[in-house]
């Protein structure tokens, strides 16, 4: 039986949110393929970590515990993950598209000579017929992602060279506990036999990590700005409206690239995926890379001076106008009517 393996990120006693989201998706795929869901956890002080992972329906945890693995380091973590994959031969391996996942996944894919698709927005199971060789491949992983600046959506498959590997951004899949009392099996991985001193040639000198100050993913109201906002100063209007409504400010990639707003607030395929009850898109044209990260919002209001902006097609309300004009009016009339 070829199973589904999720590489779980672990830091400061916690499994990463993105990993739990992937386990949730992995469980569904495993049910569909009638195989097991497995997790690889590599780190130090892993005692009790299974309690965070089993409720998502994880059948097996490969646990590699070693004091030297407290913080993520590419070479030792890659070596251990390669070992786990070679020993257990999963058909699918999933990674978060984080700085950790995007560091380890290509290294491991290269060593195993298998395919890897980055930043998938959807994963499905399906067949593929290859005309040239008249071969049908059953139950492949369809790795679906926007491509080429978001102008197209591509379905990528790895017919021959398995495992099939993919990375997925945080927030794209939904975190869903299957059974709080679910119990799977733990398999210990002997790190001593896998690791060499040469795996530690890159040394961490210093770390300055902060808890994220921005919490866009869980915000019920998001005011997002695009390149059309025009300036950092105009973004202050968005912050004012967000503060007033109890929401957060997000931005499109174009706004981040233009330096209007920090990367942490980027929404879309290469940023965060959000599902708020209200999404106000200010000066965002609506490339699919952006809409992939927000089109499940319950209500979308688009403010744009281009009546033909693509985002207007998925909006519930379209306001034709300039940001500097419309947003202050929204602030004014909210204040006037909210009491």
């Amino acid at each position: 039986m070829k199973n589904i393996l999720v590489y779980c990120e672990f830091e400061d006693g916690l499994i990463g949110d993105v990993s739990l989201e992937l386990l949730s998706k992995g469980r569904k795929l495993a049910n569909q393929l009638n195989c097991r869901l497995e997790a690889a956890i590599i780190g130090a002080n892993l005692k009790g970590v299974e309690k965070q992972v089993f409720p998502y329906g994880t059948d097996v945890i490969y646990m590699a515990e070693d004091a030297r693995l407290e913080h993520f380091l590419n070479l030792p973590h890659s070596a251990i993950l390669q070992h786990i994959i070679r020993e257990n031969n999963p058909q699918i391996v999933l990674f978060g598209a984080t700085s950790v996942g995007r560091d380890i996944a290509p290294r491991v894919a290269s060593a195993l000579r298998c395919g890897l698709t980055a930043d998938c927005t959807s994963l499905e199971i399906g067949d593929h017929y290859e005309k040239k060789s008249d071969t049908t491949y059953k139950d492949l992983l369809y790795q679906i992602r926007p491509a080429f600046g978001g102008n197209i959506v591509a379905t990528i498959i790895n017919p021959e060279m398995h495992p099939q590997m993919a990375t997925v951004r945080e927030g794209v899949m939904k975190k869903e506990i299957v059974d709080a009392n679910f119990k799977g099996k733990i398999v210990k991985v002997e790190t001593e036999k896998i690791l060499n001193d040469t795996d530690f040639v890159v040394k961490i000198i210093e770390r300055h990590l902060e808890k994220s100050k921005v919490n866009i993913k869980n915000s019920g109201i998001i005011i997002a700005g695009g390149y059309g906002v025009g300036s950092k100063e105009n973004f202050n209007l968005l912050f004012e409206l967000a503060a007033l409504l109890g929401g957060e400010v997000g931005g499109s990639r174009a706004a981040v690239d233009a330096g209007y707003i920090e990367h942490e607030r980027q929404i879309g395929q290469t940023g965060v995926t959000v599902r708020p009850k209200l999404y106000i898109a200010c000066g965002i044209s609506g490339a699919i890379q952006h809409t992939a990260g927000m089109n499940e919002s319950a209500m979308i209001i688009s403010i744009n001076n281009d009546p033909h902006a693509p985002i207007n097609q998925i909006a519930d309300y379209v306001i034709n106008g300039e940001i500097a004009d419309v947003v202050p009016k929204m602030i004014k009339f909210y204040k006037k009517n909210s009491k």
Binding site: I152, A154, T155, I156, I157, P159, E160
Partner: peptide
Amino acid sequence: PTKVKAIEN
């Protein structure tokens, strides 16, 4: 190893 199965506008 990766092939493009489908491209959609």
